[in-house]
Amino acid sequence: MIQAFAFYLFAALVIASGALTVLARNPVHSVLWLIVAFFNGAGLMVLVGAEFIAMLLVIVYVGAVAVLFLFVVMMLDIDFAELRAGFIRNFPLGIAIAAVLLAELVLGIGAYRAGAIGLGTPMGDAAPLLGESNIENIGALLYGRYLFLFECAGLILLVAMIGAIVLTHRERKSPRAQQNIARQIARNPNEATVNARPEVGRGIEL
């Protein structure tokens, strides 16, 4: 009972905040609605017993991705009115694609229900450990059986980082003066200030 109630609460909120993400006039509000959608999605994941994915949703999507979106929205000068005009122009196409996807879903699920699609039986070589939470299960697989792939995925991220730096980083060699923080902090007030007693009408030489 309470589960069904929680499900409908989270589900309704996900859909509502998803719709508001698209419809909100202010882009910052859109991102905030997106965060609400992520939180409720995490609630749904807890309900189905995937607490690890729930945590990932909160930590990665809310903590990192949504904040990144917010940065992009606030720091880049994007003309949202123009974007919205594009949205309306492409609306028929979007509807058509959505209809095709819906038809595919209906066909696929219909065929599956009718028994026309026989899915493969899992080999069971990644079967869950009995009596452990799914966090421990994922950890055991990720750092045990799939250790090799995990490390290789790390290398991919490293290459992505190298690539981003290689393609965008430029050595600045401008003649403009640059702030040297160490020198600035190490400055000695006795050397920086001079007391002088200029004679009247003579001025001072610096």
Partner: peptide, 20 residues
């Protein structure tokens, strides 16, 4: 999975090299 990870490692480096 090994196939895909190897392929991505190769491709990602290649994209950067093409724009070097």
């Amino acid at each position: 999975m090994t196939l895909y990870i190897g392929l991505e490692l190769q491709s990602l480096s290649a994209y950067v090299l093409a724009a070097f």
